[in-house]
Amino acid sequence: MHMTVQLRPADETDLEAILEIHNDAIRTSTSIWTDEPVDLVERRAWFAEREAAGFPVVVAVVDDVVVGYASFGPWRPKSGYRFTVENSVYLAAGHRGRGIGATLLAEIVRLAQDAGMRVMVANIEAGNAASIRLHERSGFTAVGTVRQVGTKFGRWLDLLIMQLPLQTDGWDAAAT
C-alpha cells in the first residue's frame, strides 16, 4: 500500500492534532520528560513562541490527517548558543516506522541550514532505540550521555545527546 505524505508549515488549525500527538508521547513514552498532559492553551502558547522567534513547525499529513510534527528551537537560552538548535519530531501512534519521521527530520534540518544555524542537537532518552536510529540514519552522532538526569514512570532516565553539523565550513571533524 502506497502512502503519500505531505509536509507543510503548521497553522492554528493543526494545534488540536499536534496536542493529541504531544500528549500521547507524554502519556505513553519517555520521549517528553513531563508527567502531566498539556492543554490547548499551552500548545497555542508554544506555537506562538515558535512563530515569534522564527522557528518552524512542520506537520506531516496523510489523507488529510496530521500524523506527525517536527520543529526546532533554541538549545540553550544564552546568546552564545544562538546558532545551535534542538529538534523535536513526534508521530501519531500507528504512523511510526514508515519513514515519516525521517521525512520530517530532513525537512527541519534543511530549514535550519537555510536559516544559517550551525548545529542541530537531539536530546534523546538513552533507551529510545527508534529515535536514536532515526537520528543516526540522518547523520547525527552521539556526543555524550548524561546519567540519571530525569525521571519518569518511577525510574531514572539517561539523556543521550546527539548532534549534526549543519554548516561544515571550518568544522573540526576530529573534535567529534
Rank of each mutant, 00 (worst) to 15 (best):
T176I: 05
V38C: 05
R44F: 07
E49L: 13
E49V: 12
R50M: 15
E136W: 00
Q148R: 13
A175Q: 12
F55Y: 15
R50K: 15
T28I: 01
L164V: 03
P56Q: 05
Q163P: 01
E86G: 05
D39K: 06
G101Q: 01
E16T: 04
V67P: 06
L15S: 03
R98P: 01
L40G: 08
L157Q: 10
L164C: 12
L164Y: 12
A25L: 06
D63A: 15
S71Y: 00
L111C: 04
E42R: 13
L91K: 02
I161Q: 12
G97F: 09
G127D: 13
A106Y: 00
I18Y: 00
L164T: 04
N87D: 14
G73M: 01
T34S: 08
L40E: 12
N128C: 12
R118I: 07
Q148K: 13
T4N: 13
Y81V: 12
T13R: 14
Q113R: 13
G144T: 01
Y90M: 13
I161E: 11
R50H: 15
E49A: 15
F83Q: 05
G101V: 00
E36K: 11
Q167L: 11
G170C: 10
G127F: 06
V109E: 05
R98T: 02
D24K: 02
I26P: 09
R155A: 08
V149D: 05
R96Q: 15
V5W: 08
K78P: 02
S29T: 15
V146T: 06
S29Q: 05
A25F: 05
S131M: 04
R82V: 03
R43I: 15
L19P: 02
P37S: 09
A92Y: 02
T4I: 13
W156C: 10
W156V: 03
D14R: 00
E16A: 07
Y69N: 04
E125I: 03
V149C: 14
G154W: 06
A17R: 09
L111G: 06
G154Q: 04
G97H: 01
P165H: 09
R147W: 11
S88C: 06
V85D: 09
G116P: 11
I100L: 10
A122L: 09
F153A: 14
D39W: 07
L19E: 06
A129N: 04
A93Q: 14
G170H: 09
T168C: 08
M1S: 14
P77E: 15
E51G: 07
P56C: 11
L164H: 12
T103S: 11
I124F: 13
W75Q: 11
G73Y: 08
V41L: 09
E49F: 10
L104C: 04
D14G: 04
D11R: 03
Q163W: 01
L104G: 02
I18K: 01
I100M: 12
